[in-house]
């Protein structure tokens, strides 16, 4: 399985993402720069964390108009798995691939620490290797992670099992402690915590690895070669 790791000017978790896929998962990964226009050769797309374009104006606001984002939208529409972590999540929100918006953390502080997440939904292509309700430890590192959406959007997310991860307490002011959400068709996941930084016990936790394993397992299932 071949993963694209998108690199914007200011991305800084691209190498972690690449390492997680290549070294821990044992799949193929390739960096794709912001000015490229095709992702046709990839099976999945990863948008890493960082501060794309300095996060000027709003986090993710300028990145949404990078040439590569048209290709990301095309990949999403084609049903390929698209995972946006931290700044990648913010870019997906700004680009309209996921509903809602990010505000400054409620306490104004940049929060950088391991947090406990609850797996709210394991019937997704990103979480099938977790148990329903499984508690996992994954680090967060963000200043603008205070998720907001309208009550109507929240109802739609909730009723359709699109709230995938939640914090166990009020970390940053996010509506309903939301940490990660899915798009309507279930192939685009945005999350503030960093699963790519939790792929080996040496890093303090390997709880992020099943997320990547889920992507591969589900992809194999639909692309299995029957002889």
């Amino acid at each position: 399985m071949k993963f694209a790791v998108i690199v914007f000017p200011g991305s800084n978790c691209d190498k972690d993402m690449y390492y997680a896929v290549k070294n821990e998962l044992g799949e193929e990964a390739e960096y794709v720069f912001h000015d490229e226009t095709s992702l046709d050769r990839f099976d999945a797309v990863l948008l890493p964390g960082g501060f794309s374009y300095g996060d000027y104006l709003r986090s993710g606001a300028i990145a949404q108009f990078s040439p590569v984002m048209e290709a990301v939208k095309k990949a999403a529409a084609a049903g390929k798995p698209v995972l946006g972590v931290c700044n990648g999540f913010q870019v997906l929100l700004e680009a309209g691939l996921l509903p809602g918006a990010m505000r400054r953390n409620k306490g104004l502080k940049f929060i950088c620490k391991p947090v406990t997440l609850r797996t709210e939904e394991n019937a997704t292509m990103f979480t099938s290797e977790y148990k329903q309700g499984e508690m996992i430890t994954v680090p967060v590192a963000h200043g603008d992670g205070n998720y907001y959406c309208s009550d109507e959007d929240y109802r739609i997310l909730k009723e359709n099992g699109r709230i995938v991860f939640t914090y166990t307490d009020d970390l940053n002011g996010s509506k309903a402690n939301i940490a990660g959400i899915l798009n309507e068709s279930g192939n685009v996941l945005g999350m503030m915590p960093h699963p790519e930084r939790a792929v080996d016990t040496l890093l303090g936790s390997a709880d992020g690895l099943p997320l990547f394993r889920s992507i591969v397992a589900n992809w194999r299932e639909t692309h299995a070669v029957h002889r």
């Binding site: 104006l57 709003r58 606001a61 300028i62 108009f65 929100l93 700004e94 509903p99 809602g100 918006a101 505000r103 907001y148 959406c149 309208s150």
Partner: peptide
């Protein structure tokens, strides 16, 4: 398109 985010 860019200067404001109509969601918030």
């Amino acid at each position: 398109k860019l200067l404001a985010n109509p969601v918030i």
